[in-house]
């Protein structure tokens, strides 16, 4: 019989004491044991990036990490992004730019982007594309996400100027809002 482990996890700064069999992934534990369904899943094989969460500040695929290996580490999910009712600048930028369409890849996208901006709020377009290259999105064509991450980076660096398409709607008629 498999043993059941008594795990003490820290999720979004909150302690969680759980009895978990060793073969359960962090994804299963977050969604099915902690009730944190904000973290989604698209393949469970590490191929799509949908289940990305932060572990000690680094983006990891929750489907490929055993919950038992997360003891003593800082787990952050999309539910922990906002402070109280205040949205994180990334969440605001994603919401305002339409960077979330179906919204299913969004939590993973936000967490990967957070790790990037925590390290470098001035990340440039190519750095953003590289950092997010393991997170697939089928709706947006990625550009609204890139713009949102750039904008959130500006907000974090103290410059809240919104992208052109939000300043003056007619600008989009003149052509590209991103190069």
């Amino acid at each position: 019989m498999p043993t059941v482990l008594n795990l003490e996890l820290s999720v979004n700064g909150e302690p969680r004491q759980l009895l978990v069999p060793p073969h359960h992934s962090l994804l299963e534990v977050l969604r099915e044991r902690c009730g944190l369904t904000g973290t989604k899943h698209g393949c469970e094989l590490g191929e799509c990036g949908t289940c990305t969460v932060l572990l000690d500040g680094e983006p990891v695929l929750a489907c490929l990490v055993l919950a038992a290996e997360c003891v003593g580490r800082r787990i952050e999910t999309v539910e922990g992004l906002s402070v109280g009712a205040e949205l994180h600048p990334l969440q605001r930028a994603f919401a305002d730019l339409g960077a979330a369409q179906c919204g299913y890849c969004t939590p993973g996208m936000l967490m990967t982007a957070k790790a990037l901006l925590d390290e470098n709020p001035r990340a440039e377009e190519m750095e953003i594309r590289e950092a997010l290259a393991g997170n697939l999105c089928r709706c947006t064509g990625y550009w609204k996400i890139i713009e949102a991450v750039q904008w959130a980076g500006r907000i974090l660096a103290g410059d809240p100027t919104p992208p052109a398409i939000l300043r003056e709607p007619s600008e989009v008629k003149g052509g590209c809002s991103h190069g």
Partner: peptide, 12 residues
């Protein structure tokens, strides 16, 4: 959801 089979885990 694809899930892992059961096993025992030893953390060296």
């Amino acid at each position: 959801m694809l899930r892992l089979p059961e096993f025992t885990l030893h953390q060296a």
